[in-house]
C-alpha cells in the first residue's frame, strides 16, 4: 500500500501558511491571466491580509471536512509554487470539485503541476474514496483542457456563452474523472 499521499518526487503537498503564503498568493493575484485561469470571479488583485483571511477560513472548513487545501512546493524548498483545493464535497454522492494552479508562468510546463495532480487524484480516490472528481475550465483555456485530458478527464457539458472575458463570450466547460477511469501511476 502506498502510504505517501503528500510526497512526490518533484513536488510535495503541504499546509498553507497564513502569514508567509499570503504574500505569494497576493502576488499571483496581480496577474489577471492567472486569475482568469483559476476563477470566474471578477479579476482584482487582493492584498496579503485578504489571502491570510482566506487561508484561515479554508483551515476552518478543512476542520469540518468541507474543503481540502494544499500548498504545492518542491522538496527542500519552502517557496510556494502553486495551490490545489478539493471543495464542494458531496459525501453521500462521493462527488467533489477541485481547482489546481501553478502561480507563476515560469514554474509551469515542468511537470510540477502534473505531479501535484497525480497526488491529488490518489488522495481523492484512495483516501477520500470519491467516485467522481470534477472541475470547470473556460473554453479559451486550451492549456487547461489539454492538461486535464492527459489525466483522462472527460468533457461533460458546455455552458454556452456563460463566460464574458476580455470582450468575448466563452463556454464554461465541465470535465470529470470517475474512479473507474483513473489509473494510479
Amino acid at each position: 500500500m502506498n502510504t505517501q499521499l503528500f510526497k512526490g518526487e518533484k513536488v510535495r503537498l503541504t499546509a498553507l501558511n497564513p502569514d508567509k503564503d499570503a504574500e505569494v498568493m497576493s502576488a499571483w493575484s496581480h496577474d489577471a491571466d492567472f486569475l482568469h485561469r483559476t476563477t470566474t470571479e471578477i479579476a482584482a488583485p487582493i492584498p496579503p491580509p485578504g489571502y491570510k483571511k482566506k487561508i484561515e477560513e479554508w483551515m476552518k472548513d478543512m476542520d469540518k471536512n468541507e474543503v481540502f487545501v494544499f500548498g504545492i512546493r518542491q522538496p527542500g524548498d519552502e517557496r510556494l509554487i502553486g495551490m490545489a483545493q478539493i471543495y464542494w464535497v458531496e459525501w453521500p454522492h462521493g462527488a467533489a470539485h477541485f481547482t489546481i494552479g501553478i502561480g507563476k508562468p515560469e514554474d509551469r510546463n515542468k511537470g510540477l503541476g502534473s505531479e501535484a495532480m497525480r497526488l491529488l487524484l490518489r488522495y481523492s480516490f484512495h483516501e477520500l474514496n470519491l467516485h467522481r472528481l470534477a472541475t470547470f475550465v473556460s473554453s479559451w483555456n486550451a492549456d487547461g483542457l489539454r492538461f486535464l485530458a492527459r489525466f483522462g478527464f472527460v468533457e461533460e457539458f458546455r455552458r454556452r456563452e456563460s463566460l464574458y472575458i476580455m470582450g468575448q463570450r466563452y463556454d464554461q466547460v465541465g470535465v470529470s474523472l470517475l474512479k473507474e477511469e483513473w489509473h494510479d501511476n
Binding site: G94, A95, E156, F157, R159, R160, G174, S176
Partner: peptide, 24 residues
C-alpha cells in the same frame, strides 16, 4: 440540453446523472 455530469448522484442505491441546461 448542454450536457450532463455523469453519475453525479447516488440515491436509492442507483447512480444518476445531473443534466445541464441553458437558454441564450
Amino acid at each position: 440540453m448542454e450536457g450532463r455530469e455523469r453519475s453525479a448522484m447516488l440515491r436509492d442505491g442507483k447512480r444518476w446523472d445531473f443534466f445541464c441546461m441553458g437558454i441564450l
